[in-house]
Computed example of a mutant assay.
Amino acid sequence: MGGPAIPVAVIAGFVLFFSWGIHWRGRALRRRGIRTRARCVGTRNENGRTELLVQFSVEGGSKRVAVGPFKWPPASVGGTVEVIYDPQDLSNVLMPDEIGTGRVALLLTIGSSLLLLFCVLAIVITFATW
């Protein structure tokens, strides 16, 4: 019943969910992101990767967020890095070279949407003829 369409649909659903989120977060930063300098106020190390805890000024105060992970962090505690943040979602912060054009995430979103649609159709047809 459904054959391989069910596990493929589940995988396509996960890819769609994550690629959609990556596409929209990057799109928000490309459209309305504000570039600013942030001061590194701490680090977290896990599995050979380092996340930087950075603090930067926003309208009405300051914000602390983690950026990364990095194999080789671009700054140490007390140093500064350039970040781009979304003024409508202050948790959406990336380094400028991490934003990209969004084409890969958009292609993954479109491809996984089509694959999910075909899988659902195959499952419906299989159950209708069962």
Rank of each mutant, 00 (worst) to 15 (best):
A122L: 09
F127L: 15
L106C: 04
L108P: 00
R32P: 04
S113L: 05
R27V: 00
P96M: 11
G2H: 03
V93P: 01
L121S: 03
R31L: 14
L114Y: 03
V54L: 05
R35G: 11
L90T: 12
F70G: 11
V124P: 08
R32D: 09
S19G: 06
T80M: 07
L115R: 00
G3D: 08
V41P: 07
A28Q: 09
L53A: 12
V65R: 08
R31Q: 14
V77L: 03
V54C: 05
S76G: 12
E98W: 06
L107N: 09
T50W: 06
I110S: 07
L107A: 15
S113I: 01
W72E: 09
L94V: 00
S112R: 08
V54T: 03
K63R: 15
T126R: 13
A5Y: 15
C40H: 06
G78E: 00
G13P: 00
V120N: 01
I125F: 15
L114I: 11
T129W: 12
P96S: 15
P69R: 06
F70K: 04
R39M: 12
Q88M: 11
F14M: 10
T101S: 10
G111I: 04
T43D: 05
S91W: 05
F56D: 12
V104D: 13
G48Y: 01
W130H: 15
